[in-house]
Amino acid sequence: MNLRPKNQRGASFLGLLFVVVVLGCVGVVAAQVIPTLIEYQAIDKAANQAKEGTTVPEVRAIFDRVQAVEDFTAVSGKDLDVQRSGNRMVVAYAYEREIHLVGPAFLVLRYKGQSR
Protein backbone atom coordinates (compact mmCIF):
# COMPACT_ATOMS: atom_id res chain seq x y z
CA MET A 1 0.00 0.00 0.00
CA ASN A 2 1.34 3.42 -0.99
CA LEU A 3 0.46 6.09 1.63
CA ARG A 4 2.22 9.02 -0.05
CA PRO A 5 0.13 11.07 -2.43
CA LYS A 6 1.50 11.19 -5.95
CA ASN A 7 1.05 14.96 -6.41
CA GLN A 8 1.26 17.14 -3.35
CA ARG A 9 -0.63 20.42 -3.44
CA GLY A 10 -0.44 23.51 -1.27
CA ALA A 11 2.15 25.98 -0.09
CA SER A 12 5.30 24.97 1.69
CA PHE A 13 6.33 26.61 4.93
CA LEU A 14 9.19 28.46 3.22
CA GLY A 15 6.89 29.68 0.46
CA LEU A 16 4.40 30.96 3.01
CA LEU A 17 7.20 32.59 5.03
CA PHE A 18 8.50 34.35 1.90
CA VAL A 19 5.04 35.74 1.07
CA VAL A 20 4.57 36.99 4.66
CA VAL A 21 7.98 38.74 4.64
CA VAL A 22 7.29 40.44 1.29
CA LEU A 23 3.83 41.57 2.41
CA GLY A 24 5.30 42.82 5.69
CA CYS A 25 7.92 44.92 3.88
CA VAL A 26 5.30 46.35 1.52
CA GLY A 27 3.09 47.13 4.51
CA VAL A 28 5.87 48.98 6.35
CA VAL A 29 6.65 51.12 3.30
CA ALA A 30 2.94 51.80 2.70
CA ALA A 31 2.54 52.85 6.33
CA GLN A 32 5.25 55.47 5.79
CA VAL A 33 3.98 56.66 2.37
CA ILE A 34 0.30 57.12 3.28
CA PRO A 35 0.90 60.07 5.67
CA THR A 36 2.79 61.89 2.90
CA LEU A 37 -0.17 61.37 0.56
CA ILE A 38 -2.52 62.80 3.18
CA GLU A 39 -0.17 65.77 3.59
CA TYR A 40 -0.16 66.27 -0.20
CA GLN A 41 -3.96 66.37 -0.22
CA ALA A 42 -3.95 69.00 2.54
CA ILE A 43 -1.44 71.12 0.60
CA ASP A 44 -3.51 70.81 -2.56
CA LYS A 45 -6.62 71.87 -0.64
CA ALA A 46 -4.76 74.88 0.79
CA ALA A 47 -3.52 75.89 -2.68
CA ASN A 48 -7.05 75.72 -4.06
CA GLN A 49 -8.31 77.91 -1.24
CA ALA A 50 -5.41 80.36 -1.62
CA LYS A 51 -6.10 80.98 -5.30
CA GLU A 52 -9.10 83.07 -4.24
CA GLY A 53 -6.74 85.89 -3.22
CA THR A 54 -6.28 88.86 -5.54
CA THR A 55 -2.63 89.70 -4.83
CA VAL A 56 0.45 87.58 -4.24
CA PRO A 57 0.81 88.57 -0.54
CA GLU A 58 -2.90 87.85 0.01
CA VAL A 59 -2.57 84.42 -1.63
CA ARG A 60 0.42 83.59 0.58
CA ALA A 61 -1.43 84.80 3.70
CA ILE A 62 -4.49 82.65 2.89
CA PHE A 63 -2.23 79.65 2.32
CA ASP A 64 -0.43 80.22 5.64
CA ARG A 65 -3.76 80.41 7.51
CA VAL A 66 -4.92 77.11 6.00
CA GLN A 67 -1.48 75.64 6.76
CA ALA A 68 -1.90 76.54 10.44
CA VAL A 69 -5.27 74.80 10.55
CA GLU A 70 -4.32 71.71 8.51
CA ASP A 71 -0.95 71.41 10.34
CA PHE A 72 1.48 70.53 7.55
CA THR A 73 5.06 71.74 7.31
CA ALA A 74 6.37 70.66 3.89
CA VAL A 75 5.30 73.86 2.11
CA SER A 76 4.74 77.37 3.41
CA GLY A 77 3.40 80.51 1.75
CA LYS A 78 6.86 81.72 0.79
CA ASP A 79 7.53 78.44 -1.11
CA LEU A 80 4.60 78.96 -3.49
CA ASP A 81 4.93 79.99 -7.11
CA VAL A 82 2.02 82.41 -7.60
CA GLN A 83 1.17 83.68 -11.08
CA ARG A 84 -1.74 85.49 -12.62
CA SER A 85 -3.40 83.69 -15.53
CA GLY A 86 -6.00 85.96 -17.08
CA ASN A 87 -8.20 87.15 -14.25
CA ARG A 88 -7.38 84.36 -11.78
CA MET A 89 -4.40 83.37 -9.68
CA VAL A 90 -2.56 80.08 -10.22
CA VAL A 91 -0.80 78.69 -7.15
CA ALA A 92 1.91 76.10 -7.88
CA TYR A 93 4.08 74.15 -5.44
CA ALA A 94 6.68 71.39 -5.46
CA TYR A 95 8.49 69.56 -2.67
CA GLU A 96 10.25 66.31 -1.79
CA ARG A 97 9.86 63.80 1.01
CA GLU A 98 12.50 61.21 1.93
CA ILE A 99 11.64 57.95 3.65
CA HIS A 100 14.50 55.95 5.13
CA LEU A 101 14.18 52.30 4.17
CA VAL A 102 17.25 50.43 5.39
CA GLY A 103 20.94 51.26 5.61
CA PRO A 104 21.83 53.78 2.91
CA ALA A 105 18.57 53.23 0.99
CA PHE A 106 15.95 55.99 0.85
CA LEU A 107 12.65 56.32 -0.97
CA VAL A 108 12.35 59.84 -2.41
CA LEU A 109 8.85 61.08 -3.18
CA ARG A 110 8.56 64.23 -5.31
CA TYR A 111 5.24 66.00 -5.10
CA LYS A 112 4.20 68.74 -7.49
CA GLY A 113 0.90 70.42 -8.13
CA GLN A 114 -1.05 73.58 -8.77
CA SER A 115 -4.45 75.00 -8.04
CA ARG A 116 -7.30 74.06 -10.33
Rank of each mutant, 00 (worst) to 15 (best):
E52S: 14
K78R: 14
G103K: 06
A94H: 01
F13Y: 13
V33Y: 08
R84D: 07
M1C: 07
Y95S: 02
N87Q: 13
N48D: 12
Q114P: 00
P35H: 07
K112H: 00
A68N: 15
F72S: 03
E58M: 03
Q8T: 13
R110W: 03
Q41T: 09
K51T: 12
N87A: 12
V29A: 12
F18W: 11
V19D: 01
E39L: 05
G103A: 14
R84Q: 15
Y95Q: 04
V19M: 03
P35D: 07
L17D: 10
G77M: 04
V69Q: 07
A105R: 09
S115D: 04
A30Q: 06
Y95C: 00
P57K: 03
Y93D: 00
L16M: 12
V29E: 11
D44E: 13
L109N: 05
Q83R: 14
S115N: 04
V21M: 11
V108L: 11
S85D: 14
R9E: 13
A50Q: 03
R4D: 13
K6Q: 15
R60Q: 13
D79Y: 00
A92M: 04
I43N: 01
V90C: 04
L3Y: 07
L80G: 05
A31Q: 09
F63Y: 05
A46I: 05
R84E: 14
N87T: 15
V91S: 00
Q114C: 00
S85N: 14
N87P: 08
L101V: 15
V59Q: 01
K112D: 01
G86D: 10
T55K: 02
T55W: 03
K51I: 08
V56N: 08
V59M: 00
I99M: 07
D71T: 15
V26R: 06
L101F: 13
V56K: 08
L101D: 07
G86W: 10
K51V: 10
G86R: 06
V29P: 10
A74H: 00
V75S: 01
A11D: 09
Q41L: 05
V102Y: 14
E58Q: 06
T55Q: 01
A74S: 11
Q67A: 08
K51A: 08
R116A: 13
G113H: 02
R9S: 15
D64K: 08
V91D: 02
V102Q: 09
C25W: 13
V66G: 02
V22Q: 06
V29N: 09
G15H: 11
V102M: 12
S115E: 02
E52R: 10
V20F: 03
V26N: 07
A30W: 11
D64G: 10
N87C: 01
L80K: 02
Q83T: 15
F13D: 04
L80M: 05
T54R: 05
R84L: 11
F13H: 08
M89V: 10
N2G: 09
R84S: 12
R88T: 15
I43Q: 01
G27V: 11
I43C: 02
Q83N: 12
A94W: 02
A46E: 04
N48T: 12
E96I: 02
L80D: 03
A68C: 10
Y111Q: 02
N2D: 12
G10N: 14
G10D: 14
N7P: 06
A42Q: 14
A47H: 08
